[in-house]
Structure formats: C-alpha cells, structure tokens
Nucleic acid binder design. Sequence first.
DNA 1: GCCGTTTTCGGCCCGACTGTTTTCAGTCG
Length: 644
Amino acid sequence: MVNVSVWQLPQSRSKSPPYMSKTQISATFEQVAILLELDGANRFRVIAYQNASRALATLEEDLFLVVKENRITEIKGIGKGIGGLISEAVLNGTWGNLGELYSKIPHGLIEMTGVPSLGPKRVRLLYEKLKIDSLEKLKYACKDNQIALLQGFGQKSQEKYLEGIDLLKRYQGRNRLDVGLAYGRALEEKISKIPNVVKAQLAGSARRMKETIGDLDIVLAAKAEHQDGIIQEIMNFSGIADIKGQGTSKISLILEAEMLAEPIVNNEMDTALLESITERSTNATIDAQIRIVNPEIFPFTLAYFTGSKEHNIRMRQRAIDKGLKLNEFGLFSQNKAEDKISIEAVKNTLVCSNESQIYKNLGMDWIPPELREDMGEIEAASKRNLPKLIKLEDLKGAFHNHTTSSDGAATLKEMANYAINLGWEYLGIADHSESLNIGGRQIGIPSGEIINQSIEIKKLNKYFQNENINFKIFHGSECDILSDGKLDYSLDLRNSLSHVIGSVHALGSWKNRDESTNTEFLIKAIEDPTFTILGHPTGRILQGREGFPVDMHAILREMAEFNQEGILKAVEINASPFRLDLDWRFCKYAKELGVPICINPDAHDTQGLNDVWYGTKIARKGWLEDKDVLNTKNKSEIEILFGK
DNA sequence: GCCGTTTTCGGCCCGACTGTTTTCAGTCG
C-alpha cells in the first residue's frame, strides 16, 4: 500500500512530539521488511514488520494518543519489540538500531530483487560471493559468465537474469486499474473463445478492483483431456512478450500492447475503459498468470486466486476452526484431506458449484470480491451483516465536472445532454476558480466572468423546466484551497453558488510541509461556511505522484462534527482512474462517522462522466451503500441540502 | 517478531514451477 521510493529513515521536522506520523512509520516498516529479507532474517520476522506496517496504515485512532496512553501493544500485530520502536519514533523521533540495517544493506540490492526469478536469497548470495550490488554489475557478471560458474546457479539462471534486466526496463511495476482491466478483459476474452474452454474468469486484484494492479490472474476451467491443447493455443497468442513459466496447470506470461489489438466486446464495460487502452505506452508490459483446472474445482481456484492473501489466510483459518481444510482445490474434512494434496484431493471435496457455496459451507454469506481485503468482511459475513453495496444505477448525478469555461473540452449544453442520456437527474458544474494557473496560463474562471456561466445555467434550467425534463444543472465551483487554507474567490461570490468543491492544486507548498500543518490548513478550509465538498483530498496521481501528507482520519473526524450539527460537509471519491482519491481505505471510516461521500467523475469532456464506473467500484471497495453516497439522492433532496 | 480458551514455546498458509540437483532450495503468487 505504501509507496516506497526513498530508502532512508525519515527525519522529523517537528519541534515537539509526535515526531513521526503513522504514515511515516508504516512506510518505514515496509522498507525494513525488505531490508530484513535481504539480510537473511527469519521470514516470520519479515512478516511481522509487514503486518505491523499494515496495522498502522489502517489504524483509525490518533497514533500519538495511543502511544501516550501505552496502548500500542493492544493493536493486533504489534508486540513488545515493534511497539517499542513505534513509541520511540513518535516520542523521540529516533529509530532504535534500524539505522544499522539501513547502512548494512546496499540499496542496489533492492532493485536487483526486481529481476524476475531473482529473489532476496540469491541476491544476497551474489553480493557475498561476487560483490554484485547493482543491476549494472549483475549485467556485467552475466555477460562475463561469472554467474553460471557459481554453486547453485547455472547457464539458464544467467540467461534469465540478463533477459530479466532488459524486461525490467519495460516493466512499469503496478498498473492503474483501468489499464489492468483493459489487459485482463482482453486476455479473458481471447481465452474464452478457445474451443473446449468451459469458463475463463479474471481473478486477483483486478477482480477485487484495487486502484492499481500488480499482475493479472485468470482462472480457466476445462476438462483434463482438453487442457494441453488449450495451453498450446494460449502460447500462440499474439501480444506475448515472454513466457516466464509453463506447466500442466499454470502458465506465466508477460503481455505487451499487441494483446489489446482486438477490440473488447463487453456490455458491462464503458467507453472509459476502452479509451484507457490507447493512452497506454506501447512499449510497456504487464504480467499474467493463467491457472488451468477441471471445471468442478473452478470455484475454489477462483476464490483462491481472487484473494486477497490476507482474506485467504482468514478463510483457511475459519475452515480449520470448523474441522475443515480449504485450499485452491477444494474444501475437505480434515481427516479425509490427510496425505492427499493437490489435484488428487479433489475426490474428497465438499461439492461447491460456485463461490457462494464455499462461503455457505463455512457459515458465511458470499462476500463481493471488492471487500475481500480482511478489513472486517469475514466477521460481517459470519454475522450475515455485510453491507448492501452501492451500484452504478444508484447514482442520480454528480457534482464535480468541467466545461469549456475552464479546462473542459465540452460545452455546458453538451455536458448536460450527455448526463441526461445517462439517466441522471442533475449535473453539478464546478469549473476551476480564478487562482488556478498552469504553466503561466490562467485556467480558472475570473470572478468577473462567473456571472456569464450563471446566466447560461439559469437559461438551460428554465428550458428543462419548460420542456418537462426532470433535470437540473447545479452551479458550483471547484474552488482552490490556497496554501494558507483560505478559499479562492470572494465570500459573496462563493455564497452565490450552489456548492463549493474545495481542492488543492498548487501542490508544491503542501508537499513540502509536514502532515500536521497540512491537516490544520485543510481543516481551516473545511470550516469555511461556503465549503461543501472536499475534492481529490490528497492530490495523488496513481503511478504518477504521491499526494501531500495529511491525517485523513483527523480530517474526517472534523467533517463528522459539522454533519452532526446538520451542516453538510462531504468528501469526494474522485472517480478518475488516474486519481481514485479519497482512497477506499478511508471510506469505511467516513461512513461510520456519518460523513457523506460523493462519487465525482471530475469530467473534462462528456465521455469523462463515465468515470463514475470506477468511482462506484472504489466506493464498493470502501463498504459504501447507496445511503452513504450524496449523489444517490434525487434532485429535490439535493436542492434542499444545497439550499439552491 | 507476534501470538495464545491445548498460552511463555513452537508454530506462523501453502502449492506449483524451475533449475540445479540426484532430493531440494529458491521464487512466486
């Protein structure tokens, strides 16, 4: 979850405790886990740091408070050792003896583990035996035939590493959800068309709708006698950059852009997904794993490879508690499963023809894939208490959209017509405010000109009324939150609008300040009486740039207080697949606090309105139901809320 | 390094595939 880019221990800029934020400590522990692995540490110690990192990232409470009250080891996954480190980081701003680990491991080893089939153990061995501590040195050693001569290595490993170094340059790491889905659906469809394929379905993080996708997992069901032939057909697909591995039950491929050559025909997906395909650099690649199983095993394999890993661990534990054993081949009674692993064991499985029966056998409701992150869904499904997740059809409009008056490509009228065709009851227009400049060019609407937009909107609304069209345009603004937390435009102007979406655009000063200062300024903006919705709360661009540091839990708590007093302060899920900000991990907390969430496409053209598809998926991932989302309300309800 | 209603030790999810071995360790998901 944490983007690891700088390999050093954070230094505090604060003059008094808390010296470190939970985000900083969480990111540090993720790095520590990697360094420990390279150091040859016990693998469970590595896992302990990974778990602690995750526990901190999902901690809703104020960390400083937890540390002060000596409750740090009450958090599951944090014991005496790691708890001590956390307290020290928060109260003193120091990191115990972690500094030793950081200076001991050459950081070049980290990028070496990125080479396919080269892991921490072998990287360490290469470093110890040949003093290789960078990709360059590795490349040289391969060409110089040094690797093949090493004990435990050979000619094939050497060739693989050399190839891997080149592939690494084309590999972009994770991919945005839209890009991952485009590749995933393309491969899924191609495989489905092969004769004798009973079923092929995308699993993994793409099925769980994670905001970024590492690699693709596809589960393929076919009768045993057809499997070899099908594997051969897949290997002959165009658009395969490399074959990483191939067995009787699994193929591991690297896909390249040619995979997308044939258009996807899929009635569920919208144009936004198809558009994303063309935006993709043609030289980039994505990894894909295909599992081939007999049809009766399919639901188990699908569930297993949908994950997440954390969800699966809990599921297996639950099976054990019930005297059963769950794996990717079936659900067995413990005694019958003895000594029978893998495909042989299937003869003893409890028959489940779909995923829902697997959950049922474990005394649970079927869990939608988006929720399978071990964020409380196991408990909820056991108590038959899962949320009734929001659907795309529940949306009645959206509030954050642009027109040609600022940096949009479509006119007010074009945007409105498209929204009407989507079946919406309203469209909120929120063009940029006066201060927004990009590259010296003014993007936002000058305060003197906003009246023109207002007149045009009133005219259109009158027309809709006269023609008996149940549709209204709400005139808002995406108003810049300036670096000191003040809002752009005059108070009078903001008061004249139906809604004010406060967004940070000039990220510079926000990225250079610490978390608590940013949180303070953002709260100041939210407190402004004209402020309605917080736009793209951190300013992140997925796979592009990190957002500015801010304590989102604290922000949401602040917004909750206003809502308790009946004053609307909502937070947006920016539905653009480039952003998906608010992060879904905060949605459940917002929901529990009663802070309304708004799924906003931030559309800059008519097609952009379709991005609410992604926003809805992310909202589902964040446990949201229709009642938690502001833009599921109908037109008249919104008129009352906005007072316009 | 964490955890505990078989609790202070001995587990911690586990199977496929690969290459280098001649029975297995490392990597990956």
